[in-house]
Design a protein around this nucleic acid. Structure first.
Length: 480
DNA sequence: CTGGGGAGGGGGCCC
DNA sequence: CGGGCCCCCTCCCCA
């Protein structure tokens, strides 16, 4: 006969002992603040402590002391409370730092929950958005990220089905924080197959890892292509937990206990600051993430991301920002913010000419110039340089390119006709407002001459190349 | 099947 | 710190 409440009461007693400083045999020093705990509890909860305590296990008579600088006392409080209660108090403000700390301490379950938390706060597809708004009608106070949530874990899983959780794509736990308070977390061992790692995500990480660490990309791992985010969003919500599939990848990098030298440049990450390489897949997110959600995350990004200390040649400390989702390290916070979009799938810059969305404004700009403005003074067919005299702009739907007169003749002008709606040139918004509406130019350049033709979606325009070329000199389009 | 080119995406870094 | 450019890589399409 098994009494399900036994484990709960046992841990409750241990927690009580911790609070009363009874039998505590381990001191943890975090930025000057001392935490007392039981080494057997820490040993059982954290891979880091397991390593640490196993090394010092011979000296059981002396209290073990561990010192951390890589995270704040508040963060460790959250971690320790989880260890002793199974409840993880996550908020939009602390989730990144808690995850980094959990990564450092090798607490995979905590990492998984943090990722789910982040992912859920970012994972807003159009469909989900609709649901979000519909739910918001019922729960006006729903705020998602900033709402604190409590992850109940462990023994209680026995009294509640383990399938009613963790997949943010399921049930009421999924979106916009509407059900954060109901969001329960269960240890990896109790989760079912739906928690399997997304192969695409795994793939992306492995690719990145290979790239950043100078490792060869496994040929059997298909390459994740960001442009297929819709496909990705359509996949079942599987992520979380260190699956067995990840093991080969994880073995490619060293553990934080031995430290590692980052394969990029000569910057060596100090051992004490090395972050765990327990790679975790990115929080899955739809390509149509609501940027404001991501902004909240970015805004709340704690300084823990800057713990990657290194030293310049002048012996001056140089801060580095480590991505919480991969091994990538950047010098600037803005670069990290930009990099994070490749994990969150956020694409805040839509091309209103064709609807394609981009994660970066410069990519959108480049796309627009190349696809919709025919900036390249090169004949698309023969690749020769063309001017307003030797070539013309052809519009095919929203796509524009140039053809020299010869190629134009070969293509058969007779088959091309005017698209009157495209009479005015496409203009790229200059204000940089990512939400601004794109518009067709209203200045109606006087030098634009529409040449009528016979096809259904092609337009040939005589344009002033001098203006275009001046623009090109100014903006230096990314022409390869 | 293969190679070349276009397009997209990510990182570094300058302004 | 954001915008933007350059460089590099990968994927996809097409000849």
């Amino acid at each position: 006969m098994e009494i399900s409440s036994h484990q709960f009461h046992l841990l409750q007693q241990l927690n009580e002992q911790r609070r009363q400083d009874l039998f505590c045999d381990c001191n943890i020093l975090v930025e000057g603040k001392v935490f007392k705990a039981h080494r057997n509890v820490l040993f059982a909860s954290s891979g880091y402590f397991k390593m640490l305590l196993s090394q010092s296990s011979k000296e059981t008579s002396q209290p073990t002391t561990a010192t951390f600088q890589a995270f704040s006392p508040d963060t460790f409080t959250v971690i320790l409370d989880f260890v002793y209660s199974g409840k993880l108090s996550l908020t939009g403000q602390n989730v990144i730092e808690v995850m980094s700390a959990a990564s450092y301490l090798q607490m995979t379950d905590v990492i998984s929950v943090c990722k789910t938390f982040i992912k859920s706060s970012l994972d807003i597809s159009e469909k989900e958005k609709d649901r979000y708004f519909s739910l918001s009608d019922k729960d006006v106070n729903s705020n998602g990220v900033d709402r604190s949530c409590l992850y109940g874990a462990g023994w209680r899983a026995e009294s509640s089905p383990p399938h009613s959780h963790l997949s943010p794509d399921q049930g009421t736990c999924m979106m916009g924080g509407n059900a954060w308070s109901n969001f329960s977390y269960y240890p990896t061992s109790q989760r079912n197959a739906q928690q399997q790692l997304s192969k695409h995500e795994q793939r992306q990480d492995s690719v990145k890892k290979s790239r950043h660490l100078g490792l060869q990309q496994p040929s059997d791992i298909p390459h994740y292509k960001s442009s297929k985010l819709e496909d990705r969003a359509a996949e079942p919500a599987g992520h979380i937990a260190q699956s067995e599939e990840q093991v080969p990848i994880e073995t490619e990098v060293e553990s934080p206990h031995v430290g590692y030298q980052y394969g990029q440049g000569s910057d060596v990450i100090p051992r004490s600051l090395a972050v765990s390489q327990q790679e975790h897949e990115s929080p899955r997110s739809s390509s149509k993430s609501k940027s404001s959600k991501a902004d909240e995350q970015y805004a709340s990004m704690p300084s823990i991301l800057g713990v990657m200390g290194s030293w310049t040649e002048d012996d001056l400390p140089r801060m580095r920002f480590k991505c919480p989702f991969c091994t990538h390290v950047v010098k600037r916070k803005a670069d990290l913010k930009r990099h994070l979009r490749c994990h969150t799938g956020e694409r805040p810059y839509p091309c209103e000419a064709c609807g394609k969305r981009f994660s970066r404004l410069d990519h959108l700009s480049s796309h627009f110039r190349t696809i919709h403005q025919a900036c390249k003074p090169i004949c698309r067919k023969c690749k020769r340089h063309v001017t307003e005299l030797t070539g013309q702009v052809v519009q095919e739907g929203t796509r524009r390119y140039r053809l020299c007169n010869e190629c134009l003749a070969e293509a058969g002008i007779d088959s091309i006709h005017i698209d009157l709606e495209a009479e005015a040139p496409l203009e790229f918004p200059q204000d940089g407002d990512k939400d601004s509406r794109w518009h067709y130019g209203e200045d109606n350049r006087s030098d634009v001459e529409i040449v009528e033709d016979g096809s259904t979606d092609l337009v040939i325009q005589q344009v002033d190349d001098s203006e275009d070329e001046a623009d090109e000199k100014e903006v230096k389009p990314n022409i390869r």
